[in-house]
């Protein structure tokens, strides 16, 4: 049994790595259609990654070992994060060692390394990107933690698989605090994944970049890994969102069989398709916030999550210990 579970766990991680660029490609397609243009093919991110892996590395002479190691660290933390998020099933051996707080810690580790690497070469843009990333990050983390605490109050655990199992046990549970938490989570997702309204992933303005600025000095396979890690981060966030708010289809504890697994995969793809389209729509109708409004935006996310907590406590709704 344990071998099967372990195999399934590894399979889930492999699937996450494999389809994260597909999710990014789908969002790019939706964005293209909303800009009244024909879309690049769905598999475009894969072609980009393949091409990048084949190119020569152009490294700045000032690059330190940290700069060269960071793409691997980033990719590694995102893969590890994928291992503890129940995208397909809740039977995750790795998740026993880490809960949602640890997940946030993984994201924080990635952020720190990315910022350090951006400052490594010493260009002004890298440092600006790092500084802004830290500003967004230090406000987004508490908001995300509050969302997690909302879930804790509802289901009594911060381990994501337990949350999904808890939901499966009480599927009719609709708590108003969930709505607040969901909106807060969406806002944090947009901020943390460098999406409009916080950052423009398609921008050509070097002075406005946050995420892109930290990638300017990378090339070839390092760039490929960084881009892949970004796709994985978005994928992970999406899966966390599904686990917290739309866990239908995820194979819960004790439920086995290829049938449920296939259902889980189909459900996941369907949810990703809808989520991608919604994300693209939000990006297409919004403008980017002035940088100093980003803290306000994240403060609202934090506030909404706290409001969710308060609503839950004041209404005295059912808790599941």
């Amino acid at each position: 049994m344990r071998e099967i579970t372990l195999a399934r766990q590894l399979g889930e991680v492999a699937l996450a790595i494999a389809i994260a660029p597909l999710f990014t490609g789908w969002i790019a397609q939706c964005r293209a259609w909303m800009q009244n243009r024909s879309a690049p093919p769905l598999l475009q991110p894969y072609r980009m990654l393949r091409k990048l892996f084949q190119k020569d590395v152009a490294l700045a002479t000032e690059a330190s070992p940290l700069f060269r190691a960071t793409p691997y660290v980033l990719f590694g933390t995102m893969v590890l994060a994928a291992a503890i998020i129940p995208s397909l099933a809740t039977d995750l051996p790795f998740a026993q060692a880490a809960d949602a707080i640890a997940l946030i810690g993984l994201f924080a580790t990635a952020r720190v390394f990315q910022s350090l690497a951006a400052m490594d070469i010493g260009t002004a843009f890298g440092t600006m990107g790092a500084r802004r990333e830290m500003m967004v990050g230090f406000l987004a983390e508490p908001a995300l933690l509050m969302v997690m605490f909302n879930a804790f109050l509802l289901y009594g655990s911060t381990a994501l698989p337990s949350l999904v199992d808890g939901y499966a046990a009480h599927p009719a549970l609709i708590d108003p605090s969930v709505i607040f938490a969901a909106i807060a989570f969406l806002m944090v997702l947009l901020a943390e994944n460098a999406r409009i309204p916080i950052d423009n992933p398609a921008t050509h303005l070097e002075l406005t970049m946050i995420h892109e600025a930290m990638l300017l000095e990378y090339s070839a396979r390092h760039l490929a890994l960084m881009e892949w890690a970004s796709s994985l981060k978005l994928f992970n966030y999406a899966c966390v969102g599904f686990a917290l708010f739309f866990p239908w289809g995820i194979a819960t504890h004790g439920v086995d069989g290829t049938g449920t697994l296939l259902l889980a995969i189909v459900a996941l793809l369907g949810k990703l398709a809808v989520a991608g389209a919604v994300l693209a729509l939000i990006e297409s109708i919004s403008a980017k916030l002035r940088l100093f409004r980003a803290p306000e935006y994240l403060a609202i996310a934090f506030l909404l999550a706290v409001l969710g907590l308060l609503v839950h406590l004041l209404l005295g709704a059912n808790t599941h210990a």
Partner: peptide
């Protein structure tokens, strides 16, 4: 100007 403010819709329409 729309595009520089992150509003790509503006760029699409005006460039058309």
């Amino acid at each position: 100007l729309g595009n520089d403010a992150g509003f790509a819709f503006g760029l699409t329409q005006f460039s058309r």
